[in-house]
Protein backbone atom coordinates (compact mmCIF):
# COMPACT_ATOMS: atom_id res chain seq x y z
CA UNK A 1 0.00 0.00 0.00
CA UNK A 2 1.50 3.25 -1.02
CA UNK A 3 0.63 6.69 0.12
CA UNK A 4 0.14 9.71 -2.03
CA UNK A 5 1.72 13.01 -1.17
CA UNK A 6 1.33 16.09 -3.30
CA UNK A 7 3.41 19.19 -3.49
CA UNK A 8 1.05 21.66 -1.95
CA UNK A 9 3.26 24.73 -2.10
CA UNK A 10 6.84 25.77 -2.73
CA UNK A 11 8.35 28.92 -1.30
CA UNK A 12 10.90 29.59 -4.01
CA UNK A 13 14.22 31.07 -2.98
CA UNK A 14 13.17 31.30 0.63
CA UNK A 15 16.84 32.02 1.32
CA UNK A 16 19.65 33.39 -0.81
CA UNK A 17 21.81 30.35 -0.04
CA UNK A 18 21.40 26.64 0.64
CA UNK A 19 18.98 25.81 3.45
CA UNK A 20 20.62 23.58 6.06
CA UNK A 21 17.93 23.17 8.64
CA UNK A 22 14.22 23.65 9.28
CA UNK A 23 12.24 23.51 12.52
CA UNK A 24 8.45 23.62 12.74
CA UNK A 25 6.16 24.91 15.44
CA UNK A 26 2.40 24.33 15.36
CA UNK A 27 1.83 27.34 13.17
CA UNK A 28 5.12 28.23 11.53
CA UNK A 29 8.43 26.87 10.36
CA UNK A 30 11.92 28.24 10.99
CA UNK A 31 14.50 27.86 8.28
CA UNK A 32 18.25 28.41 8.51
CA UNK A 33 20.74 28.76 5.69
CA UNK A 34 24.18 29.99 4.71
CA UNK A 35 22.79 33.52 4.97
CA UNK A 36 22.83 35.49 8.19
CA UNK A 37 19.06 35.75 8.64
CA UNK A 38 16.61 33.16 9.94
CA UNK A 39 13.22 33.05 8.22
CA UNK A 40 9.89 32.10 9.72
CA UNK A 41 7.09 31.12 7.35
CA UNK A 42 3.51 30.58 8.39
CA UNK A 43 2.26 27.01 7.95
CA UNK A 44 -1.40 27.74 8.55
CA UNK A 45 -2.01 29.83 5.46
CA UNK A 46 -2.21 28.24 2.02
CA UNK A 47 0.54 30.42 0.56
CA UNK A 48 2.92 29.78 3.45
CA UNK A 49 3.74 33.50 3.66
CA UNK A 50 6.87 34.85 5.30
CA UNK A 51 5.84 35.74 8.81
CA UNK A 52 9.05 37.12 10.23
CA UNK A 53 12.73 37.54 9.43
CA UNK A 54 15.31 37.45 12.19
CA UNK A 55 18.06 39.51 10.56
CA UNK A 56 21.76 39.15 11.38
CA UNK A 57 21.09 36.12 13.52
CA UNK A 58 24.35 34.42 12.52
CA UNK A 59 26.97 36.38 10.62
CA UNK A 60 28.47 33.40 8.80
CA UNK A 61 25.19 31.57 8.38
CA UNK A 62 23.39 28.99 10.45
CA UNK A 63 23.70 25.21 10.23
CA UNK A 64 21.14 24.07 12.79
CA UNK A 65 17.85 25.43 14.02
CA UNK A 66 15.52 23.48 16.29
CA UNK A 67 12.24 23.64 18.11
CA UNK A 68 11.02 21.15 20.68
CA UNK A 69 9.45 18.04 19.20
CA UNK A 70 6.03 17.93 20.80
CA UNK A 71 6.65 21.23 22.55
CA UNK A 72 4.54 24.34 22.89
CA UNK A 73 6.53 26.17 20.28
CA UNK A 74 7.63 29.11 22.41
CA UNK A 75 11.37 28.53 22.17
CA UNK A 76 13.76 27.94 19.29
CA UNK A 77 17.54 27.49 19.21
CA UNK A 78 19.92 28.13 16.35
CA UNK A 79 23.65 27.52 15.88
CA UNK A 80 25.86 29.60 13.60
CA UNK A 81 28.93 28.57 11.63
CA UNK A 82 30.87 30.87 13.94
CA UNK A 83 29.99 28.53 16.85
CA UNK A 84 27.46 30.76 18.60
CA UNK A 85 24.11 29.46 19.86
CA UNK A 86 21.13 31.79 19.95
CA UNK A 87 17.93 31.15 21.82
CA UNK A 88 14.74 32.69 20.54
CA UNK A 89 11.45 33.14 22.29
CA UNK A 90 7.97 33.98 21.15
CA UNK A 91 6.67 37.21 22.51
CA UNK A 92 3.30 36.98 24.20
CA UNK A 93 1.57 39.84 22.57
CA UNK A 94 -2.01 39.89 21.48
CA UNK A 95 -1.53 42.69 19.00
CA UNK A 96 1.57 41.42 17.33
CA UNK A 97 0.89 37.83 16.49
CA UNK A 98 3.76 35.39 16.77
CA UNK A 99 6.70 37.71 17.02
CA UNK A 100 9.95 36.01 17.90
CA UNK A 101 12.83 37.77 19.59
CA UNK A 102 16.29 36.95 20.87
CA UNK A 103 16.11 35.50 24.35
CA UNK A 104 19.78 34.96 25.14
CA UNK A 105 22.94 33.74 23.56
CA UNK A 106 25.67 31.22 24.28
CA UNK A 107 28.95 32.56 22.84
CA UNK A 108 31.39 30.29 20.96
CA UNK A 109 33.53 28.09 23.16
CA UNK A 110 36.77 29.89 23.83
CA UNK A 111 38.67 26.83 25.00
CA UNK A 112 40.31 24.41 22.60
CA UNK A 113 37.29 22.14 22.64
CA UNK A 114 35.51 21.25 19.44
CA UNK A 115 32.97 23.58 17.94
CA UNK A 116 29.29 23.30 18.75
CA UNK A 117 27.30 21.42 16.16
CA UNK A 118 23.83 19.88 16.50
CA UNK A 119 21.18 21.03 18.98
CA UNK A 120 17.92 19.68 20.40
CA UNK A 121 15.33 21.16 22.78
CA UNK A 122 13.48 19.18 25.42
CA UNK A 123 9.68 18.92 25.05
CA UNK A 124 9.14 21.25 28.02
CA UNK A 125 11.46 23.77 26.32
CA UNK A 126 13.54 24.11 29.48
CA UNK A 127 16.68 22.25 28.39
CA UNK A 128 18.98 22.35 25.41
CA UNK A 129 21.35 19.59 24.36
CA UNK A 130 24.18 20.51 22.03
CA UNK A 131 26.92 18.35 20.58
CA UNK A 132 30.50 19.22 19.72
CA UNK A 133 32.85 18.17 16.96
CA UNK A 134 35.05 16.43 19.53
CA UNK A 135 32.24 14.17 20.67
CA UNK A 136 30.83 15.92 23.72
CA UNK A 137 27.24 16.64 24.59
CA UNK A 138 26.46 19.66 26.74
CA UNK A 139 23.09 20.09 28.42
CA UNK A 140 21.99 23.61 29.29
CA UNK A 141 19.30 24.73 31.70
CA UNK A 142 17.73 27.48 29.65
CA UNK A 143 16.02 29.30 32.49
CA UNK A 144 18.97 29.10 34.84
CA UNK A 145 21.25 29.90 31.86
CA UNK A 146 23.87 27.42 32.96
CA UNK A 147 25.42 24.22 31.74
CA UNK A 148 24.20 21.45 33.97
CA UNK A 149 25.61 18.34 32.35
CA UNK A 150 28.34 17.23 29.96
CA UNK A 151 28.41 13.75 28.51
CA UNK A 152 31.78 12.57 27.25
CA UNK A 153 32.06 9.99 24.52
CA UNK A 154 35.76 10.28 23.84
CA UNK A 155 38.82 8.90 25.47
CA UNK A 156 40.06 12.34 26.47
CA UNK A 157 41.21 12.65 30.06
CA UNK A 158 38.81 13.79 32.73
CA UNK A 159 40.18 17.34 32.86
CA UNK A 160 39.99 18.26 29.22
CA UNK A 161 37.56 15.71 27.88
CA UNK A 162 36.88 15.64 24.17
CA UNK A 163 38.73 13.37 21.83
CA UNK A 164 35.51 11.66 20.85
CA UNK A 165 34.08 11.11 17.42
CA UNK A 166 32.25 14.10 15.93
CA UNK A 167 28.70 14.10 17.31
CA UNK A 168 26.78 15.02 14.17
CA UNK A 169 23.24 14.61 15.47
CA UNK A 170 21.32 14.78 18.73
CA UNK A 171 17.76 14.30 19.93
CA UNK A 172 15.94 14.37 23.27
CA UNK A 173 13.07 12.01 23.95
CA UNK A 174 9.74 13.73 24.54
CA UNK A 175 9.42 12.24 28.02
CA UNK A 176 12.72 13.91 28.90
CA UNK A 177 14.30 10.63 29.83
CA UNK A 178 16.86 10.10 27.08
CA UNK A 179 19.46 11.95 25.05
CA UNK A 180 20.65 10.24 21.88
CA UNK A 181 23.61 11.20 19.73
CA UNK A 182 24.84 10.03 16.35
CA UNK A 183 28.56 10.09 15.65
CA UNK A 184 30.86 10.19 12.67
CA UNK A 185 32.36 6.88 13.76
CA UNK A 186 28.97 5.25 13.18
CA UNK A 187 28.26 4.98 16.91
CA UNK A 188 24.91 5.87 18.42
CA UNK A 189 24.87 6.62 22.14
CA UNK A 190 21.84 6.90 24.40
CA UNK A 191 22.17 8.62 27.76
CA UNK A 192 19.76 8.47 30.67
CA UNK A 193 19.17 12.07 31.69
CA UNK A 194 18.06 11.31 35.24
CA UNK A 195 21.04 9.16 36.03
CA UNK A 196 23.34 11.29 33.89
CA UNK A 197 25.06 8.34 32.29
CA UNK A 198 25.38 6.29 29.15
CA UNK A 199 22.79 3.52 28.91
CA UNK A 200 23.11 2.19 25.36
CA UNK A 201 25.95 2.12 22.91
CA UNK A 202 24.34 1.07 19.67
CA UNK A 203 26.31 -0.16 16.72
CA UNK A 204 25.21 -1.41 13.37
CA UNK A 205 25.53 1.50 10.98
CA UNK A 206 29.35 1.59 10.81
CA UNK A 207 29.27 4.74 8.67
CA UNK A 208 28.83 8.35 9.88
CA UNK A 209 25.46 8.91 11.56
CA UNK A 210 23.92 12.19 10.43
CA UNK A 211 20.48 12.05 12.02
CA UNK A 212 18.85 10.53 15.10
CA UNK A 213 15.22 10.83 16.22
CA UNK A 214 13.13 9.40 19.06
CA UNK A 215 9.63 8.21 18.24
CA UNK A 216 6.83 10.30 19.81
CA UNK A 217 6.16 7.52 22.30
CA UNK A 218 9.87 7.38 23.18
CA UNK A 219 9.91 3.61 22.58
CA UNK A 220 12.01 3.71 19.43
CA UNK A 221 15.06 5.51 18.11
CA UNK A 222 15.77 5.98 14.43
CA UNK A 223 19.37 6.57 13.31
CA UNK A 224 20.72 7.09 9.80
CA UNK A 225 23.49 8.65 7.74
CA UNK A 226 26.05 7.66 5.13
CA UNK A 227 24.93 4.05 5.25
CA UNK A 228 21.72 5.12 3.52
CA UNK A 229 19.84 2.81 5.84
CA UNK A 230 17.57 3.84 8.70
CA UNK A 231 18.24 1.69 11.75
CA UNK A 232 15.45 1.36 14.31
CA UNK A 233 16.37 0.63 17.93
CA UNK A 234 14.15 -0.34 20.82
CA UNK A 235 14.66 1.93 23.83
CA UNK A 236 13.49 -0.52 26.44
CA UNK A 237 16.38 -2.91 25.99
CA UNK A 238 18.62 -1.12 23.50
CA UNK A 239 18.10 -3.68 20.79
CA UNK A 240 18.39 -3.24 17.08
CA UNK A 241 14.85 -3.88 15.82
CA UNK A 242 14.95 -3.36 12.08
CA UNK A 243 16.48 -1.58 9.12
CA UNK A 244 14.64 0.49 6.57
CA UNK A 245 16.43 0.54 3.26
CA UNK A 246 15.85 0.99 -0.40
CA UNK A 247 17.18 -1.83 -2.51
CA UNK A 248 20.04 0.05 -4.00
CA UNK A 249 23.66 -0.94 -4.24
CA UNK A 250 24.91 2.41 -3.24
CA UNK A 251 22.27 4.37 -1.42
CA UNK A 252 22.71 8.10 -1.04
CA UNK A 253 23.72 9.64 2.26
CA UNK A 254 20.69 10.43 4.41
CA UNK A 255 20.96 13.81 6.10
CA UNK A 256 17.68 14.11 7.98
CA UNK A 257 15.00 11.91 9.56
CA UNK A 258 11.75 12.64 11.41
CA UNK A 259 8.80 10.68 12.91
CA UNK A 260 5.24 11.70 12.24
CA UNK A 261 2.91 12.47 15.16
CA UNK A 262 1.52 8.94 15.40
CA UNK A 263 4.90 7.24 15.20
CA UNK A 264 3.76 5.17 12.21
CA UNK A 265 5.79 6.88 9.53
CA UNK A 266 9.32 8.11 9.12
CA UNK A 267 10.41 10.83 6.77
CA UNK A 268 13.92 10.90 5.34
CA UNK A 269 15.84 13.27 3.10
CA UNK A 270 19.09 12.54 1.33
CA UNK A 271 21.90 14.15 -0.65
CA UNK A 272 20.55 12.79 -3.92
CA UNK A 273 17.54 15.03 -3.45
CA UNK A 274 15.05 12.31 -2.55
CA UNK A 275 12.53 12.62 0.23
CA UNK A 276 10.98 9.32 1.31
CA UNK A 277 8.16 8.27 3.59
CA UNK A 278 8.61 4.92 5.32
CA UNK A 279 5.98 2.70 6.94
CA UNK A 280 7.87 1.69 10.07
CA UNK A 281 5.76 -1.36 10.99
CA UNK A 282 5.96 -2.86 7.54
CA UNK A 283 9.53 -1.70 6.98
CA UNK A 284 8.93 -0.33 3.50
CA UNK A 285 9.20 2.93 1.65
CA UNK A 286 5.68 4.05 0.79
CA UNK A 287 6.46 7.27 -1.07
CA UNK A 288 9.42 8.87 -2.80
CA UNK A 289 9.68 12.39 -4.10
CA UNK A 290 12.64 13.76 -6.03
CA UNK A 291 13.61 17.32 -5.51
CA UNK A 292 14.60 18.73 -8.82
CA UNK A 293 17.72 20.54 -7.77
CA UNK A 294 20.26 18.82 -5.63
CA UNK A 295 20.86 17.82 -2.10
CA UNK A 296 18.32 17.85 0.69
CA UNK A 297 19.61 18.94 4.08
CA UNK A 298 16.43 18.92 6.13
CA UNK A 299 13.01 17.26 6.17
CA UNK A 300 10.36 17.70 8.88
CA UNK A 301 6.73 16.75 9.45
CA UNK A 302 4.56 19.67 10.41
CA UNK A 303 2.88 19.08 13.78
CA UNK A 304 -0.87 18.67 13.74
CA UNK A 305 -2.57 21.92 14.42
CA UNK A 306 -5.68 22.27 16.54
CA UNK A 307 -6.49 25.58 14.94
CA UNK A 308 -8.61 25.39 11.88
CA UNK A 309 -6.43 25.65 8.82
CA UNK A 310 -7.31 28.16 6.19
CA UNK A 311 -9.78 26.92 3.58
CA UNK A 312 -8.19 24.75 0.95
CA UNK A 313 -5.43 23.46 3.20
CA UNK A 314 -7.00 20.04 3.65
CA UNK A 315 -6.58 17.79 6.62
CA UNK A 316 -3.80 15.51 5.46
CA UNK A 317 -0.51 15.35 7.26
CA UNK A 318 2.10 17.73 5.85
CA UNK A 319 5.84 17.79 5.68
CA UNK A 320 8.52 20.20 4.49
CA UNK A 321 11.75 19.52 2.63
CA UNK A 322 14.61 21.98 2.03
CA UNK A 323 18.18 22.00 0.86
CA UNK A 324 20.46 23.07 -1.95
CA UNK A 325 17.70 24.56 -4.08
CA UNK A 326 17.12 27.26 -1.41
CA UNK A 327 13.38 26.67 -1.45
CA UNK A 328 10.94 25.31 1.10
CA UNK A 329 8.78 22.62 -0.46
CA UNK A 330 5.60 21.60 1.38
CA UNK A 331 3.90 18.26 0.76
CA UNK A 332 0.47 17.10 1.89
CA UNK A 333 -0.98 13.65 2.10
CA UNK A 334 -3.46 13.24 -0.75
CA UNK A 335 -5.96 11.10 1.18
CA UNK A 336 -8.42 12.73 3.53
CA UNK A 337 -9.28 15.53 1.14
Amino acid sequence: MSKQYLTTHTVDQAHATEIYSVAPTRSAIFSASGSSALQIHSTIKPTFPLQQTLPNAHRLGCHHVCTARGGLGNVAASVGFGGEIKLWTRKEDKDVNNQWELWWEIPPVKSNGGDVWAVALSADEAYLACTTSDGRIHVWDLVGRERIQTYETGGGNSNTGGGGSFAMAVDLSRDGKFTATGHESGAVYVFNNDAGRLVYSLSGLAKPVRAVAFSPGCKRLAATGNAGVIAIYDMEHGEHVSNLSASSDRPAWITSVDWNDTGEYLLSGSLDGKVKVWDVARGVCVATHSETEGALWAVRWLPKNEQALAPGMGKGEMFCAAGANKSLTFYREATGM
Partner: peptide, 14 residues
Amino acid sequence: RRDDQGSQSTSGQC
Protein backbone atom coordinates in the same frame (compact mmCIF):
# COMPACT_ATOMS: atom_id res chain seq x y z
CA ARG B 1 22.79 11.66 -8.12
CA ARG B 2 20.68 9.35 -10.19
CA ASP B 3 17.79 10.64 -12.17
CA ASP B 4 15.00 8.22 -12.01
CA GLN B 5 12.16 8.62 -14.41
CA GLY B 6 9.15 9.64 -12.41
CA SER B 7 9.18 12.08 -9.60
CA GLN B 8 7.12 9.64 -7.64
CA SER B 9 7.87 6.02 -7.24
CA THR B 10 5.73 4.19 -4.83
CA SER B 11 7.68 1.19 -3.77
CA GLY B 12 10.85 0.52 -1.92
CA GLN B 13 12.70 -0.38 -5.08
CA CYS B 14 13.26 3.16 -6.19
